[in-house]
């Protein structure tokens, strides 16, 4: 049920919790924007060609490229408990 995955592996609409953000030049930016351990995140739509991707992050919409999303590790949540 609960598996460790990269943010890019989520399907549109799947809710996950951020477990860690890997070291990168944009880690700080991601964290400032609230992409931080424990945050709820859900991919909601993609740009044409699948990149960048828009996420529901807590209470707002954040877009990032696949490369940046690759550096975010998440834990998939049971959608039954986190209906949106």
């Amino acid at each position: 049920m609960r598996q460790k995955v990269k943010l890019t592996e989520l399907q549109i609409g799947q809710i996950a919790r951020v477990t860690s953000v890997e070291e990168s030049p944009y880690k700080e930016k991601l964290q400032e924007m609230g992409c931080i351990q424990g945050a709820l995140i859900k991919p909601i739509f993609k740009a044409p060609f699948g990149d960048p991707i828009a996420f529901d992050l807590e209470e707002y919409t954040l877009s990032m490229r696949k490369t940046e999303a690759q550096s975010v590790n998440v834990k998939l949540l049971d959608p039954l408990f986190y209906q949106n």
């Binding site: 944009y26 930016k29 991601l30 924007m33 960048p52 707002y60 919409t61 877009s63 490229r65 490369t67």
Partner: peptide, 12 residues
């Protein structure tokens, strides 16, 4: 060297 990124809010 520093890679660019596109971490941007999409305002409502």
């Amino acid at each position: 060297e520093i890679p660019s990124y596109f971490i941007m809010e999409l305002p409502i």
